[in-house]
């Protein structure tokens, strides 16, 4: 099965790519809409600063296309943040799939929020198949999305924030499943299963 991995500046995609391949997916790493549209699902990675990412996505003609994707879509870290209305980082605009405004942590003990933190599942979802109600996942970020009706899982770091979100075909995870050992791999596997449906 083909999974599209969006190619743009700022994403360290080695790990996510090899993780998906290990799970049996054929990864199409591309910034070409034509190629990405041949895929059963889309992964939107993200490392780095929001304004740089937005500018780069716009210059590649991907910005307008992203909200129109009609297949399972998973935003990771910055990829999830960009699915909101806006980000305080920069500031930068968002894609407007979710109604959250991404803001800097206000009460965090230390920033960036780096390391393994507890993810508490708050809504059942195909992504959580086979996972315990709470597990540790690896985070690296300084901005976060607030909790809302779209929240699938939450984490606490000085304040409670959205660790995972969903609306229709759009999923977002703030942590890095590709860096979260076996449980992260399970989440990616679950996403690939959703793509097969």
């Amino acid at each position: 099965m083909k999974v599209g991995l969006i190619a743009y500046r700022g994403g360290n995609v080695h790990s996510i790519r090899s993780a998906l391949e290990e799970l049996g997916a054929e990864v199409v790493y591309s910034d070409q809409i034509k190629e990405l549209e041949k895929c059963a699902g889309i992964i939107f990675p993200g490392v780095g600063a929001a304004p740089v990412a937005v500018q780069d996505l716009k210059s590649r003609g991907l910005w307008e296309w992203l909200p129109t994707v009609q297949r399972p879509f998973l935003g990771i870290c910055l990829g999830m943040q960009l699915l909101g209305l806006s980000s305080e980082e920069g500031p930068a605009p968002g894609l407007g799939i979710f109604p959250y405004e991404v803001k800097a942590f206000q009460r965090a003990p230390r920033l960036p929020h780096i390391g393994w933190n507890l993810v508490r599942l708050t809504q059942p979802d195909p992504l959580w198949e086979g996972l315990p109600p709470a597990f540790h996942a690896y985070f690296v970020h300084s901005y976060r999305a607030e909790v809302g009706s779209y929240t699938l899982a939450q984490t606490e770091y000085g304040e409670v924030f959205s660790a995972a979100v969903r609306k229709d075909f759009f999923w977002g995870v703030q942590f890095h499943p590709e860096k979260s050992s076996q449980q992260g791999m399970r989440i990616l596997q679950n996403f690939l299963r959703v793509c097969l449906l």
Binding site: H14, S180, G184
Partner: peptide
């Protein structure tokens, strides 16, 4: 290492 390791 990056291709196999699933921790940072």
């Amino acid at each position: 290492i990056a291709a196999k390791l699933r921790i940072p």
